[in-house]
Design a protein around this nucleic acid. Structure first.
Lengths: 196, 196
DNA sequence: GCGCTACTTGACACGCTGTAAACCTCCGGG
DNA sequence: CCCGGAGGTTTACAGCGTGTCAAGTAGCGC
């Protein structure tokens, strides 16, 4: 329930909604002044709630984590009955997920090298993401479908790296692939790479 | 005029060298003050030579283009006698190339959304890069080795997107793969994806 | 009414960018 | 020998964004 509808949302929520919108529009170069103006609070209110710019962005990232409810989607992926289907579901999840978080992800990626805390936040998410792919690969192995030439570790490295937001962004935003095409083509690439 | 001729380090060259070093150390958050100090010139000298911050970074990018001498390497890749070898050589080139340009590439990627000119510079390079992969795929097709399910366009999209600096960075810097492993694993992935 | 919380207003120090003006210094030419 | 320009330096300043501070105010429970 990220209300963007007027009245009785808390100030904190209004600021976060404004920050989300500003990130979407201006990317990493948002200013606290603009965020505050959009939320119709004073710039100082932002400092009172979040300490500093970094604190605001971290809170934004954390709220998106909560809102995304990744758990059920992951269970659905894991419930796939064969390797190809597991990979297809994974790519569907990536396509949907990436579309939702891309603006924030881009901001985090850009900020990671001059803001230690944001860098850590991004790294944490990548580590989690890597872990998920490791579990997926383990499942493939348990089903006896992982190709012999891969260790589980290396396969998860590749699975993780090739499905990052970067390639998704390039394919869908610049090369003009639809989400469906992304899912289809990447499913093909990954399944040919990882499966027997 | 700029780089190639004799050995006397012009002020302009000293500034560019300093900028390159600063980018390597501080990424996108370099300041003109630091660049100038490192080059042992006044901050204003930087403005006299390059106009503004963006101008300096564009000049840096252009100089790296010139220094990299991509042509011969590309010819070597194109001279491969079969599809697998062509892909292997491509991945070797990427591994070497990425290691050299990564700091600057990262800076450009990060800057692209709040600096139109830098964004354009990055986009130009990606477009060129995409074109190269298109030619590689055409070569694969001419050799009769491109798998049937790919159109040349789509195959080049995927080839291009999966070999971007982002995945390379993740695999070699975060997952700890050596350059050799990167080449080996990615050659496997791409060849299984694209070849018959 | 009291006091607390939440927020506002206005001011300020700091760092970085970008511009401006005055000066300095070497070097070549009339 | 003096002139002038090219290339650089120094100092100053405006603009903007961050982060901090202090004082003030509106609403609310008690």
């Amino acid at each position: 329930m990220s209300s963007s509808a007027g009245g009785d949302a808390t100030t904190r929520e209004r600021i976060l909604d404004a920050a989300r919108a500003e990130v979407a529009e201006r990317g990493a170069s948002l200013t606290l002044g603009h965020v505050a103006a959009r939320a119709r609070v004073s710039r100082q209110a932002v400092y009172l709630h979040f300490g500093d710019r970094t604190g605001l962005l971290l809170a934004l990232v954390r709220r998106m984590d909560e809102q995304l409810q990744l758990g059920p989607s992951l269970e659905h992926v894991m419930a796939a009955q064969n390797g190809l289907e597991l990979i297809r579901r994974t790519m569907e999840l990536h396509a949907r997920f990436n579309a939702g978080i891309d603006a924030v992800a881009q901001m985090l990626e850009g900020a990671q090298y001059h803001d230690e805390a944001l860098g850590q936040a991004w790294r944490d998410r990548l580590t989690f993401r890597h872990g998920v792919h490791r579990r997926l690969v383990d499942r493939l192995a348990a089903m006896g479908e992982l190709a012999d030439h891969w260790s589980a570790e290396r396969a998860s490295d590749v699975f993780h790296a090739l499905t990052l937001p970067g390639p998704w962004r390039e394919l869908t935003r610049e090369c003009g692939l639809s989400q469906e095409r992304y899912v289809k083509d990447m499913t093909l690439v990954i399944s040919r790479a990882l499966l027997r």
